[in-house]
Design a binder for these strands. Sequence first.
DNA 1: GCATTGATTCGATCGATGTCTATATTCTGA
DNA 2: TCAGAATATAGACATCGATCGAATCAATGC
Lengths: 124, 124
Amino acid sequence: MSKYQPAEQPPLTAVVPCCPPITDGELSAREAERIAATFEILANPVRLLLLSRVASHPAGEACVCDIQDVGVTGATVSYHLKKLREAGLLVSERRGTWVFYRLAPSFEAAGPAACVPRTVTGST
Amino acid sequence: MSKYQPAEQPPLTAVVPCCPPITDGELSAREAERIAATFEILANPVRLLLLSRVASHPAGEACVCDIQDVGVTGATVSYHLKKLREAGLLVSERRGTWVFYRLAPSFEAAGPAACVPRTVTGST
DNA sequence: GCATTGATTCGATCGATGTCTATATTCTGA
DNA sequence: TCAGAATATAGACATCGATCGAATCAATGC
C-alpha cells in the first residue's frame, strides 16, 4: 500500500482549463494518484521555467539553445525536457542541428486558461 | 544554483481560483520556485485524499479518525496533515480527545473553482 | 491519580529524483 | 570524410521525501 509508483507513464496528455476541484467530493485512490502525478510534473522550478520560456517565445517554439540557461547543465535541461515531452506537455522537432520545442497541441488548446494555482500571500 | 530549496515554508496561504497561466509569459526563477513549491504540496496522492475527504465531509470538517484510513499508518497521516497545515490549506482544532480538520478559510473561499489540472487522456 | 484512547513527534530507513561528468548521437560544413 | 557544434543518454552520486515503529503528549473517564 505504500507503493504508489508514478505509474509507468501517467498519460497526462493535456492539462485542461478549469478544473475538477479537489474539494468537490471524495477522490478515489486511483484519481488521487493520477492527479498527483500530474502535479508532480509541474512541481519543479526548472521545468516550469522551461515550459514558460517555450510558451512565451515569439514563434511559439524555441530552440533548446535559446532556453537552456536556467542554472543547470545541458544534460539536466535535456532530462527535464524529456519529462515534459513524456508528460505530453511539449513536443519536439529536430531541424538541422537544433531541436525545437513547442507546446503540445492539446496543452496549447487549453491556452491562457491553463491552470496554475497561485499563492496569495507569498509576494515575489 | 543547484540548490533550490522549497523555501523555509512557502507561504501558500491560499490557492486561488483560476489562474495565472504558466504559458502567459516568462517566469522569473523566483516565481518558478514559488509555484513549484505550491504544486509540490499537491503532488502527493495521500495529501490529495486527505484534502478531499476533509473538504467533502458533511460538516465541512473531519476528525482525523474519520479520514485516516488511506493506506498508511497514523504517523504518516499526521505527517501529511502537518504539511497541509503548514501550507495553509487546512486548519486544525482540538476538541476533547479528537482533532478536527477543515479547509483554511482562504482556501475555502476559492470554493469549487480551486484549481486542479486534470489529465485528459488518462481515464480512471 | 491512572489507564486508555487519539494524535503527534522522533529516529531510522529506503527509494526516487535531480544533478553532474563523461560519452554517444546527429547533423552541418569545409 | 572528418571536425565541430548541438542534444541526448548513461552512470554515479547526493539529497530529500515518504514511510514505519516506538516513544511522547493530551484529554477523558474511571
